[in-house]
Each structure stands twice: as structure tokens, then as C-alpha cells.
Simulated assay, not measured.
Amino acid sequence: MKMSLYHQPFEAIKAGTKKIEVRLNDEKRSKLHVGDRIEFTDLTTSETVQVKVLGLEKFSSFKELFTKYSGEIIGEFENKSVTDLDLENQKIYSQTREAKYGALAIRIEILR
């Protein structure tokens, strides 16, 4: 599966600090399985990196997901609040789509 990322989270995956990718659990992501590979493309540089899916965890909302996972493991600053993470995420995914699909935490491991 192919997915795109902004530069900062892409670099965090490359560095090995971002171990969970946060996505809407839409039709595309609902087809993911443990053991699958994802190719992430940096939207700034077009560089790619391959990861293996180690785990999938579904949540009814991003707020619920951010209550469990925040900080470096999802590619964010440690001091960012759940509210701030949720508000930032609403710039990417509408509340209507979030209510329809829910959120997905994708535990990943970079393939070297």
C-alpha cells in the first residue's frame, strides 16, 4: 500500500522515532493487515521509505487515539495536548469522516 506524508513525520519514521502512523480508518486503511508493507512518500522530497505493519488498533475517534498515544511515538512533540493534537488533525480529516470511519493506529517498523 502507498501513502503520502508531510516532511516532518516522514523524517521521524526514517529516524525510527515515529512508530505509530495515525490515519482515518477509511476504505483504503481498513484493508491493512499485520505483516503488510506500506511505502510512504515524502510530499516535500518525493523520497520513499518502506515499513512493515506490526499492529493495527481501531478507535472510535482521534481524541480517543490521542489519549492513548501521543508524543514522539506518533511523530509529535511530547508536550502537545490531546486537544491540540485533535484540533490539528481536524485540519486533515473532517469530523463527519471521523464519525463515519473512526481512527486507526498503525504500529510500524522501518524496513532497512
Rank of each mutant, 00 (worst) to 15 (best):
A15Y: 06
T17L: 05
K2W: 03
Y101R: 04
A105Y: 13
R97G: 04
V34F: 02
R29M: 08
L54M: 10
D36N: 11
L65I: 08
G35A: 05
K2I: 01
V82E: 01
L5S: 04
N79G: 05
P9A: 12
H33S: 07
A12P: 06
A105N: 09
I106P: 08
K63H: 07
S30G: 06
T67C: 00
L104C: 10
T67K: 02
S4R: 15
F40D: 00
L87M: 06
K68H: 05
S60M: 08
S94K: 13
L32F: 07
M1P: 07
T41W: 00
D42R: 00
G35R: 11
P9H: 11
T44G: 01
L85C: 05
F77C: 06
I92P: 12
I74Q: 12
N89E: 09
R37C: 08
L24W: 05
T83L: 09
I38R: 00
K2P: 02
E109V: 11
K18A: 10
L43H: 03
K18G: 12
L43N: 14
S61H: 10
N79Q: 11
Y93P: 06
L5K: 01
L24D: 04
K80C: 06
I74H: 10
R37P: 01
E21W: 08
E47W: 02
E88M: 10
